[in-house]
Design a protein around this nucleic acid. Structure first.
Length: 295
DNA sequence: CACTTGACCTGTCCGC
DNA sequence: TGCGGACAGGTCAAGT
């Protein structure tokens, strides 16, 4: 669920809300959600000031004045919701209605700021995490060493996508673009949407996808991610942004969660199957199944 | 090394 | 109505 557009939307909200604030308290429930020594929390988080909020792939980094950062992965059901106080923003602020709604039973970590506003990390399924790490060490995490390029970076080209995909030439194109070491930020929603855009069946083996098709896929990935960021991401289940608002992208989705509905290009009924162990949405006419090789 | 599968969790939905 | 099981999907560890 939170994929690149959702995480980027959260980042933009947090940048607006928390940069410049000073942390005065940090509370958490399970060590799994926030596996940090109390001594580090006391020394490097409490009384620190938020310097910036960054994103790489699906990971958020809240940079602190102590040369430490909070590194956060939302995984499937994570939320980062900022709840202001009326003193700071005045009555009628968009997320004013959240006051008193949080924490709830999914709240794993609560940061309280000097102005008594709060940031809640909620995560129903406890797959996500928050880690307090020295900012300089983030690049040394295994994930950051292996993760592929940002698909919306200006330097990223279709030729580079083509080249990186060749490492996964015997797997399906869907599994390959979900592989974060090939390309950063794609998850199930945008994999299906991008493959529909390029008219490629998700089960097609990478080695059978032509360079022309990969060029179309590159264009589709950028278009889909850009539009989703503009719509505040996709709220399939419980994704919300930093102000607690749902994203609107699924109103514009062409295949994801549209099984049984007509294809926006050709009218054929969208079907849901399983590819790369994931629920997969396709138009059977625009994205014909790959031919089976003779036995 | 390439590739696939299972584990991690909990809330929701579907069938009996 | 209650209950068991399937399902949701990001990432990593372990398996082939």
């Amino acid at each position: 669920m939170p994929e690149l557009p959702e995480v980027e939307t959260v980042r933009r909200g947090l940048e607006q809300f928390i940069v410049g604030l000073t942390v005065v308290d940090a509370a958490h429930d399970t060590p799994k959600s926030f596996p940090n020594a109390e001594s580090d929390v006391n020394e490097f988080l409490i009384n620190s000031t938020i310097i910036s909020v960054k994103r790489r792939a699906k990971v958020l980094m809240i940079e602190l004045s102590t040369k430490y950062s909070l590194v956060i992965h939302l995984k499937m059901t994570g939320q980062l919701v900022y709840v202001n106080n009326v003193e700071r923003f005045g009555a009628g602020h968009p997320n004013e209605s959240l006051i008193g709604q949080l924490p709830d039973k999914s709240t794993r970590v609560t940061l309280t700021f000097a102005d008594q506003s709060s940031l809640f990390f909620n995560d129903q399924r406890k797959f996500g995490w928050v880690r307090l790490l020295p900012t300089a060490e983030i690049v040394n995490l295994d994930f950051f060493k292996k993760v592929g390029p940002e698909p919306l970076n200006a330097e990223f080209t279709w030729q580079e996508l083509h080249s990186r995909l060749q490492r996964r030439k015997n797997t399906s194109i869907k599994a390959a673009i979900l592989d974060q070491t090939v390309l950063a930020g794609i998850g199930n929603i945008y994999a299906d949407e991008s493959l529909w855009g390029a008219r490629i069946h998700p089960a097609t083996l990478v080695k059978n996808v032509s360079a022309t098709k990969i060029k179309l896929l590159f264009t589709a990935i950028q278009a889909v991610l850009t539009q989703s960021i503009a719509e505040g991401g996709s709220s399939d289940r419980n994704y919300v942004d930093a102000a607690g608002n749902r994203g609107q992208y699924l109103k514009f989705a062409n295949v994801f969660r549209r099984e049984g509905q007509p294809c926006n290009r050709c009218g054929t009924v969208i079907i849901k199957t399983r590819v790369a162990t994931r629920g997969t949405h396709t138009c059977p006419k625009c994205q014909p199944e790959p031919k089976k090789l003779p036995v």
